[in-house]
Amino acid sequence: MEKSNKILFAELPEALVEEMLSKSEQVGDKLYDAFKEIQNNKARLREQLEQKNILKKDTELPYVSPPTTCGIDGSYAVEKLLATDFVACAAVSIEGLTPPSEKRFWEKPYHRVFIYPEKHDPDTGTIIRGVMMEMELELAAKAPHDIVFLDGSLTTPLIYMNQAINKMLEWKNEGIYTEVGEELEKRFGGFLEDYKTILESSRTDKMWVSLPKYTTRRELGKMFNWPSHYDDRAVLNTILLPSEFTSPIPLEKPQQTWHLRIPSNEKKLETLKDEIISAITRLYVIYYRPHNWTPVFRIEIASSVAENNSRIAILLQGLKYQSGTPGIIEPYPLYIADRMVKHLGGAIPAFRQTATRRMTELHKGDIGEIFFSMHGYRTESGR
């Protein structure tokens, strides 16, 4: 540990490190005070859930055999070069632990990828993130599994896509046409159809659910007036015992109405958009702790799942089966998918090197100019 700290702080002034370490101890004091507040009131908070009949056990639900599952995740990266930006995004679909294995036809490939050079622009990341969301939802809609796990909130695609479409249309109004913008628009119709399918989960033989790791929503906190410095998931981590879950409650409504801009005046797209926004207003959330070695999962589901105890039983059984390995604190397929896509940013320099080598093969002049133009300064990435 001492050796690791020396490497970590090697480039920082000693006085700065000492001051930051002392301030970190003060932060620890503040955090512990907040933590103790929840611990001291744990019994009262649990009683509130029991009185409202919100606290349940998975053994109360009908028994079901373990369902087939898969997890979807994606990431994007923008590497800033001297002459251009190198942009890439990818999404992957990973099957859950076997058995059980899905026997129905699963269309290959189980990934989507986009990579292209673009002109310098600080908003390229917004567009490529939208393309990434389109790819994730396409894979999710095509997966034949009983349960499809998505990383993040079910509302995240709407937020990211609205930002991406706004920026893409702003570029077009300025006469700027880019490959990443064209890719976003080309996939947009399919994105709306896939998103509607996922949000409604109307098929009884499969469901799509989201498990955000980070959230600020406080549906239960506002209902019971819990301390505002902790979100629901953080509070429930101290309350829920293994195999306990909360009854479905409506997703917290935003202060403003949901909005999604459409890049054209097609009536079909407008209809799909309205159906998507309507479905988002009918989403529900469940909190579930499958084992003592897992944190509480926040699970966002469609109303068609929330109103059917048999489908909830399948969902919880799938989560319990896919989080049975101590040390992996999220469902197995999401964990593997997340590990895979996180390597995209680190792999960009290798893709750039391959492109640079190809350019030197084609160039008849001074290759030094190519190496200068393809010099990378930094890589911005995200999911």
Rank of each mutant, 00 (worst) to 15 (best):
R282H: 10
K196M: 06
G175I: 11
W226S: 01
T69K: 02
G175F: 11
F86H: 01
L158A: 12
T155M: 09
G189V: 04
L55M: 12
Q322L: 02
V78G: 02
R261F: 00
I176P: 03
T197P: 01
E134Y: 13
N173R: 13
F371T: 07
Y76D: 05
Y230P: 00
E380G: 11
G318E: 01
P66D: 05
L236H: 02
Y76H: 09
I367P: 14
Q39Y: 15
A43N: 15
E138C: 00
W226F: 11
D121H: 15
L137N: 11
L184Y: 01
N225L: 10
A234N: 00
F188R: 08
T155S: 14
S22I: 07
I348T: 01
A306Q: 07
A88M: 10
I128Q: 09
G376N: 12
L8S: 04
I159Q: 10
I128C: 11
S202K: 15
K142G: 05
L199A: 07
P263I: 09
H291G: 03
T238P: 06
L260E: 02
I115W: 08
L240Y: 04
F149M: 02
I262Y: 15
W258E: 05
W171E: 12
G175Q: 10
M374Q: 14
A143W: 08
P242C: 00
T356C: 06
R233N: 08
K57V: 09
G327E: 13
N173P: 13
Q322H: 05
Q26A: 01
M135I: 13
A350P: 00
T238K: 04
L139P: 00
T68V: 03
G327V: 13
Y63G: 03
Q322W: 03
P248I: 07
K213C: 01
V113F: 15
E266N: 12
C89E: 11
A77W: 06
K364I: 08
G125N: 13
S210P: 07
V87N: 04
L240K: 05
F245A: 02
P254K: 15
E361C: 05
G346N: 08
G152I: 02
L139R: 02
P326C: 01
T204C: 07
I94V: 09
P109T: 09
V285I: 14
Q256C: 05
I280A: 09
R261A: 09
S65N: 11
F224Y: 08
E185C: 13
S65T: 08
K273T: 03
E330C: 04
I329E: 09
V87L: 08
L240T: 04
L211I: 06
D274G: 12
G175A: 10
S4N: 07
H145Q: 09
A279D: 09
F224D: 04
T69S: 10
I38E: 12
